[in-house]
Amino acid sequence: MTDFIEVRREGRMTVFTIARPEAMNALNAPAHFEMAAKLDTFATDPDQWLAIVTGAGERAFCAGNDLKQQLAPREPVVPPTGFGGLTNRFDLDKPVIAAVNGMALGGGFELALACDIVVAAENASFALPEVKVGLAAMAGGLLRLPAHVGPKRAMEMIMTARRISAQEALDLGIVNRVVPAGEALAAALALAETILTASPLAIRASKAVMRRALEGDIREAMTAHLDWPEIVAMMGSDDAREGPRAFAEKRAPAWSGR
């Protein structure tokens, strides 16, 4: 097991820290699977009642998928439980808090959207920039963001790849609270302590009922949309290869539309 994901247990809570600061905490395939395995352990541990996910340092929570890895002969693999082992994990009844300490981009934003509560530092920012590299936000961003902010706002954010501030995310209902820079994890820990004073079974029952009512068809769509013709065409296109290549080479992409 590698150490891309640091795990710290504090009483009844588990803190997961994405520890790839040199890559703005972007996740590569080993990091995805490591986090998935560690979330599996948390999910089945009767002594752990709540999780917090954060990133190392203060610049980035998670900058998404490691695009440079997509230039390798084999494309990066994400576990069945989704980006970071969380975005497709629909059976986790324990609460998860995101402590967003900096940029949450692409899959990083989708990771935060998959959490139950989001605490953001005032220097945090959020965006789904996938279209700028010839891809789409397929780890739940296309499905969860409209549910949070409405279809019109979501469509603009996704099509323009516009980055929003922590305050705007708060105003839009994406974030629960904004705290001073450097204090996201401390604020999340304090919030977790409050949650842990309640009955864990009551918390899990409450989460289960709310999530089932709110998610509706998201569970099916997370799998089904990967086979929709528009997604298949995009993933098999020259542009899907050109985008990550241009990103890695630090140049503007030359789109062909095919």
Rank of each mutant, 00 (worst) to 15 (best):
E230Q: 14
V149A: 08
A224P: 02
H148Q: 08
A51I: 07
N28W: 14
A60E: 04
G84C: 05
D66R: 13
P95L: 00
P80A: 09
I52A: 02
S165Y: 10
R59Y: 05
A169L: 06
A208H: 13
P253V: 05
R211K: 13
E122P: 01
R245L: 13
A136L: 13
D239E: 08
K132W: 05
S165N: 10
T41A: 15
A246I: 04
L86H: 05
G102V: 08
F42P: 12
V96H: 02
E242P: 01
D45Y: 04
A221K: 11
R89D: 00
V118C: 12
L92P: 05
D227A: 15
G182Y: 12
L86N: 02
A56G: 01
G243H: 10
L128Q: 06
D116S: 08
K152C: 00
V209S: 09
P146W: 12
A147T: 04
L111S: 10
L185I: 01
E168P: 04
G108A: 10
A190P: 01
S206N: 08
D217M: 07
E230D: 13
T41P: 00
A56R: 15
I97E: 00
P200Q: 03
P76S: 02
R212E: 14
R212S: 14
A154I: 09
P151N: 08
C115W: 07
A63R: 12
V96A: 01
A29C: 15
F33D: 00
L67T: 06
L185A: 00
G140E: 06
L27P: 01
N28M: 13
T2M: 00
P79R: 10
K152M: 08
A248G: 08
F33V: 01
A124C: 10
L86A: 04
L172F: 14
C115E: 02
V118N: 09
R8W: 01
F126D: 00
A252H: 03
Q70T: 14
H225F: 14
P129T: 09
D239C: 12
V131S: 14
M222W: 04
N25W: 11
A190N: 11
G236R: 12
K38Y: 05
P146V: 10
G64V: 07
R74D: 01
A224H: 12
